[in-house]
Design a binder for these strands. Structure first.
Length: 211
DNA sequence: CGGTCGATCTGCT
DNA sequence: GCAGATCGACCGA
């Protein structure tokens, strides 16, 4: 039986391109996690690109490499997962080619499957806050250090094609939560989605009301 | 609403 | 020591 296109796993070639391109094209794709033995899935509505060793905001800026960010220097299509502020896991997909430290951070998802599991993992928050941030979505999907350096394809957390996007639904805005090169328009989101993270500094970006 | 602040770990100065 | 790709609790308007 032939697999339907929308359920197909993204090929490694998808990630063998600049992080900016990958970040924009990941919108609308579906992340499926079986981490922790339970299914949880969400549609990507917000991403952020980190260009590599010449991006001052990248963990791999100037090829700085350490125990935490080793996976960032690995081949395209693997996960780079790190602990942020000592409390929250953040998940990236490595792009382009090994050694460049180029990656895309997953910033927000629209929950599509395993809602009961996500609600239990996240505690008592409204549904629009289940995956509305890089730390939140990792908690909802059960992503921890175990996924660091693991291949996306065939692994416990995969990204599927999903449905095509309507034209004009992608917007690029400044990055969030960083101090260096934050103004570079490398944060991508689906226009009007109620599932995105907090608004950027300056307040131009707003969330639509939850359904 | 919006602003402020503490929690808690990792790597660098 | 201290800053950091975060989050949520708490405060005041």
């Amino acid at each position: 039986m032939k697999q339907s296109r929308r359920a197909a796993t993204l090929p490694v070639a998808f990630f063998r391109r600049p992080a900016e391109t990958v970040a924009a094209e990941l919108l609308g794709k579906v992340v499926v996690s079986t981490a922790g033995g339970e299914l949880a899935a969400g549609r990507i509505v917000e991403t952020e690109a980190y260009l590599g060793y010449d991006d001052p905001a990248s963990h791999g800026y100037l090829h700085r490499r350490n125990a935490r960010n080793a996976a960032l220097f690995g081949p395209p299509g693997i996960w780079y997962v790190y602990l942020s502020y000592g409390m929250h896991w953040c998940s990236n997909l490595v792009c382009q080619r090994a050694g460049l430290a180029s990656a895309v951070l997953l910033r927000a998802l629209e929950p599509v499957d395993g809602l009961a599991t996500m609600r239990r993992r996240r505690g008592s928050v409204p549904d629009h806050e289940l995956c509305s941030g890089p730390g939140k979505l990792c908690q909802a999907l059960g992503i921890t250090r175990d996924l660091d350096g693991v291949a996306m394809a065939g692994g416990p957390v995969m990204v599927l094609q999903g449905e095509p996007l309507a034209p004009g639904s992608v917007s690029a805005t400044p990055r969030i939560g960083i101090t260096k090169a934050a103004d570079w328009p490398l944060r991508f989101h689906l226009v009007g989605s109620p599932w995105t993270s907090r608004k950027e500094k300056g307040g131009r970006f707003r969330r639509s009301p939850a359904p």
